[in-house]
């Protein structure tokens, strides 16, 4: 059963190359989609460029369907997948400040 980290053969040493490779893919596709450009990123808040919404929601939909599929096929145990805790105050104030900082700084 996945995730691989729950299996015995996955030593902590394998996590480092996995981190580098997965991070490479993350950065590569973010830039490819235009999310390396602060004007494109902030365009969403001026209704001029919706690239953030298009890229991010496509990613969320693909990943969420994939997770559900692998769970249904019995390949993945979703109970072992990390869920961010719902710390209400931190999420609400942090989210608002994140939005304010994002449109101010551009990233």
């Amino acid at each position: 059963m996945m995730p691989l980290t729950s299996l015995n053969f996955f030593s902590p040493w394998l996590a480092t190359p996995a981190a580098l490779l997965l991070g490479f893919g993350f950065g590569f596709w973010l830039e490819r989609g235009g999310l390396g450009n602060a004007r494109k990123l902030t365009g969403m808040f001026y209704l001029t460029d919706f690239v953030v919404v298009r890229v991010m929601f496509s990613a969320v939909v693909v990943a969420a369907f994939g997770l559900a599929l692998f769970q249904a096929l019995g390949i993945l145990d979703l109970k072992l997948v990390y869920l961010p805790p719902l710390a209400l105050g931190g999420i609400i104030i942090g989210g608002l400040l994140m939005g304010i900082g994002f449109v101010t700084g551009g990233y």
């Binding site: 995730p3 691989l4 989609g33």
Partner: peptide, 15 residues
Amino acid sequence: AGAALGGVLLLTFLV
């Protein structure tokens, strides 16, 4: 790009 990003994210969860 978003779909490819979703694939990378899914792979991260699986690994």
